[in-house]
Write a protein that binds this DNA or RNA. Structure first.
Lengths: 229, 229
DNA sequence: TCAAAAGTGTTAAAAATACACCCATGG
DNA sequence: CCATGGGTGTATTTTTAACACTTTTGA
């Protein structure tokens, strides 16, 4: 045990709130803890930050190790430093939130240490540590930010219908939106590429598919454009 | 040196970006470092987080100790964790930004260790560590947030004129605003108490003084009101 | 009486909202 | 031929933007 310091030090961890959207509900990815404390309880994926990796790297590594999820939209949320967050010792946790299309990833298989699963955000089990609080902060941030940043697309498959996009926004914001006004507004932004494709295997008229045009968004942003609603 | 751990640990610090507004310019409070590294250089006030204090407490303590400023609006900004932020060792810094009316406080007297001073944000000297980067992030946050949260009032004296408020917004946002439209919009929010007082000692017609009504703001916020612009 | 800033309304343009029907498709 | 959701336009209201002169006060 060779690591000795003049003053006591807090441990630094990352915790990740991974949001997914699946057909009807906003979901969050949780892992079931194998070890004490809170063995058996559900928790946010996360863990200790190595002394030679950045915070972002630690968040991505933990997600990969614990859930198998990679390549997602990831953004720092807030840093939680209450004295009694962890019953063992002082732990400062840098929380991240992430957005991902759940259909795009197979969850990591259950191991001795962890099992990962999706839960609807309004039906999560009791969580370990202060993770319920972190989740609440993440949800508030997502609801706030989705209005003025094009985050929603990160939760959808690459190709989506306008109705699908609308339902996503309705789910996140918790309010119904007018179909015609929504389409008018979204299309007026010119951020979507209209594809020559329609959805498949639906028992009614198939809707046209669209794609988010990242490069157009960047170009517009530089010219002072602001995404809104 | 009794504090020993199984794995190496990063040190955790706080750094504070304290904004003030003085008659014409947005300013930031800096301290001049007495000790290495970066001895003699200007830096953001901040320091190590004690193992038995929260992050917020650490930020307030460091501000009090290094600058004498207390009782200010303080909000967590972002946590910086690049590997080489500090040449000595791995340091994770939780940055805060704060808003204060500079006229309300006497800066702490210079000591052997530190000297504190205000600098216009567009004329800061070279800064120690990654503090220039932290300042840039704080400025971006302030400019973004001031539009939809009534933060501006934290930078002004308790009693202010509408023109004073407008100039503050013009300074922060970097754009001129229309006087009539600005007054109309601000007054329509009903967040200001009109006082039976006017400014003193001005060489022209004295303007009426107003006061921000915190309790009205909270009441409106609960009813779903959103401050904007 | 001059200089400096305070204070005050209206009009035009743009944006947001409310709203209902026909169409295409698969079962 | 029926059920399901896809797709479309207009009128109204609300919000924003542009704009200039008179008043008060102290020097």
């Amino acid at each position: 045990m060779p690591y000795t310091y003049e003053y006591p030090r807090a441990a630094v961890t990352v915790d990740c709130v991974v949001f997914g959207y699946d057909a009807a509900a906003l979901q969050v990815l949780l892992i079931q803890r194998g070890l004490a404390p809170f063995a058996g309880a559900w928790a946010l994926p996360g863990g200790f930050v190595h002394v030679d990796e950045t915070l972002d790297d630690a968040a991505r590594r933990e997600l990969r190790e614990e859930t198998g999820v990679t390549d997602l939209y990831l953004e720092q949320l807030y840093t939680f430093g209450a004295l009694d967050r962890d019953p063992r010792e002082r732990v400062v946790s840098v929380a991240y939130y992430a957005l991902v299309d759940p259909a795009h990833f197979a969850l990591a298989a259950a191991t001795d240490a962890t099992r990962a699963a999706w839960f609807a955000v309004d039906a999560v089990p009791p969580l370990a540590f202060d993770h319920a609080h972190i989740l609440a902060v993440a949800l508030a941030r997502l609801r706030g930010k989705v209005r003025y940043q094009p985050l929603g697309f990160e939760l959808l498959p690459e190709k989506f219908t306008l109705t699908g996009l609308q339902r996503l926004y309705e789910t996140i914001l918790g309010t119904p939106l007018d179909k015609r006004n929504f389409r008018k507004k979204i299309l007026a932004m010119e951020l979507l590429r209209e594809l020559d494709e329609v959805e498949q295997d639906v028992p009614h008229r198939a809707a046209r598919l669209y794609q988010f045009d990242e490069s157009k968004y960047r170009a517009l942003t530089e010219r002072g454009f602001n995404f809104e609603l």
